[in-house]
Simulated scan of single mutants.
Amino acid sequence: MRIGAIEAGGTKFVCGVGDEHGNIVDRVSFPTERPEPTLERVIDYFRDKKVEAIGIGTFGPIDIDPSSPTYGHVTTTPKPGWSGFDFLGTMKRAFDVPFGWDTDVNAAAYGEAVWGAAKGLDSCVYYTFGTGVGVGIFAEGRLVHGLLHPEGGHVLTRRHPDDTYEGFCPYHGDCLEGMAAGPAIERRWGVKGSELPPDHPAWPMEAFYIGQALASTIVLLSPKKVILGGGVMHQKQLFPMIREEVKRNLNGYVAHDAILKGIDDYIVPPGLGDNAGLCGALALGLAALRVQS
């Protein structure tokens, strides 16, 4: 099979072609501009690829309700030109193939469930910590949508006792995204996180916020695997700190061996690495093809 995949990020688009086993055989990436020139490049890429379906995992918020008149649109976003844009419709007008359509983080969660760290499990949660914070939820064998779709980056947090940073989220200030996304690290400490040493006090503070969020996720959703991706999580020293924060916050209440004895295998980086989003989009396209068949 030849399946198209689009990982549509706020900073860059990644397009690729893969097969039913999750193998990416070709890819291209380019900066995210206004919608028309960006999708023109996407359409040009796929024009000669002869794909049987295309999966799209995109930044949001987006409308993923098939019964909605604005299904397939980007909804409210500060990205110039994208608010209200008919992303999916534009692609459907260019290609007469089945389309999968979901958020970028739901796509990543799905890819991890099909081919990655949560393979063989019927539930997982995927967090990305980068320029923003996003959450994808795969539960009881399906992706969670609901009223809109999960926006777990905007849960409220307790403030670290030594933290005076006000938070950068324009809606909530000191929500999880406002305190723990990449821009929060840079604005709090004056340099990008990638320039801070592993023993810098930024990292225990970051783990404090992420650990809170994961503990809440565990008691609310009871996922069988928690996967942490995104640029911030390239700081591998964060993982043991986060696991300890989760155990501290749960305080023995969730008395399961996965947490009490095996937390190193419970809170993990993506099994698909930086391909989680693109492979997830590939899985969405494959699922759409199977539904139509």
Results as ranks from 00 to 15, higher is better:
97 V>P: 00
141 G>F: 09
171 Y>Q: 14
173 G>V: 04
75 T>G: 05
219 V>Q: 08
59 F>V: 07
290 R>Q: 15
191 V>H: 00
220 L>R: 13
111 G>K: 11
143 L>G: 07
25 V>G: 14
174 D>F: 06
245 E>H: 07
116 G>Y: 06
239 F>E: 02
172 H>E: 10
67 S>R: 13
126 Y>N: 02
88 L>V: 05
203 W>E: 00
65 D>Q: 10
242 I>Y: 02
245 E>D: 08
234 H>M: 12
55 G>Y: 10
175 C>M: 04
87 F>C: 01
185 I>C: 10
291 V>K: 15
19 D>F: 09
253 Y>V: 15
291 V>G: 13
16 G>C: 01
248 R>L: 13
151 E>T: 12
270 P>R: 08
208 F>K: 13
130 G>T: 09
186 E>H: 06
112 E>R: 02
255 A>I: 03
83 S>C: 02
248 R>S: 14
185 I>R: 03
70 T>Y: 04
116 G>H: 04
198 P>F: 09
47 R>Y: 08
77 T>V: 11
132 G>D: 02
196 L>R: 05
208 F>H: 14
21 H>D: 15
205 M>Y: 03
49 K>A: 13
243 R>T: 04
24 I>G: 06
41 R>Q: 15
2 R>M: 08
270 P>Y: 08
53 A>D: 14
57 G>D: 11
282 L>T: 12
